[in-house]
Structure formats: structure tokens, C-alpha cells
């Protein structure tokens, strides 16, 4: 099997990143926004893993990826809790409804 080149992996990561960003910016649903965040994080993770294979980064990249997964989980948990709280207050998780604080 021909080895996948680093660039291909990075392209996938970049696509994930861009998708994530677009998702974050366009979704009105809080959950959707969080999904976007996850996509971005995973794009980065993919980079780490890819680099661990093709660059002197070696194992450090994989360790980093693992840590990122953990942190992403923690963050997601907190974010969901906060979204719940928001829902409790606003009866909606449409992020556009949160517009009391401005100016």
C-alpha cells in the first residue's frame, strides 16, 4: 500500500478545520456550534498524528493528540452544561436569542 503523504493528511485536517469554523459561524443551535468546535479540534488532532508520523515530532504528537481528546471532552462537558443552563433560562438553545448583553 502506498503510503499516504503528509500533505494529504494535512489537507484533510485543514478541511476539517475549515468545516468546523464554518459550522461554528453558521449554526444557530448551540449544540451545532459545539460540534463545529469539535471539528476544529479534530482537525488539529489529525495534524498532530500526521506529524508524529512524518516529522521529528514523533511520539510527542500522539501524546498531544490524546491530551487534546481529553481536554475536548472536558470542554464539551462544561459547554453542554452551560448550554443546559442557558436553555433553562431562555427555553431555547438558539444562540441568537442570547442578545441581552450588548453595547
Amino acid at each position: 500500500m502506498e503510503a499516504v503523504s503528509l500533505n494529504s493528511l494535512l489537507w484533510v485536517g485543514a478541511v476539517l478545520f475549515v468545516c468546523g469554523v464554518i459550522c461554528m459561524t453558521t449554526k444557530r443551535n448551540a449544540i451545532g456550534v459545539l460540534i463545529g468546535v469539535e471539528l476544529v479540534l479534530n482537525g488539529a488532532n489529525l495534524n498532530f498524528v500526521a506529524f508524529s508520523r512524518y516529522s521529528p515530532l514523533a511520539l510527542d504528537g500522539q501524546v498531544a493528540a490524546i491530551f487534546v481528546i481529553v481536554l475536548a471532552a472536558a470542554e464539551a462537558a462544561v459547554a453542554l452544561a452551560i448550554a443546559m443552563n442557558f436553555y433553562n433560562c431562555h427555553l431555547s438553545i438558539d444562540v441568537d436569542r442570547g442578545d441581552e448583553l450588548h453595547g
Partner: peptide, 17 residues
């Protein structure tokens, strides 16, 4: 400047990008 500070999260995030 308050115009920018719309209070809308999506726009905030958009700003990042």
C-alpha cells in the same frame, strides 16, 4: 463601536475567522 458589539455569539465567532 457598539454596533460591533451586537451581543450575538455567531457574529462574535465569525469575527474570529
Amino acid at each position: 463601536l457598539r454596533v460591533f458589539q451586537t451581543g450575538q455569539i455567531r457574529q462574535y465567532v465569525m469575527f474570529i475567522a
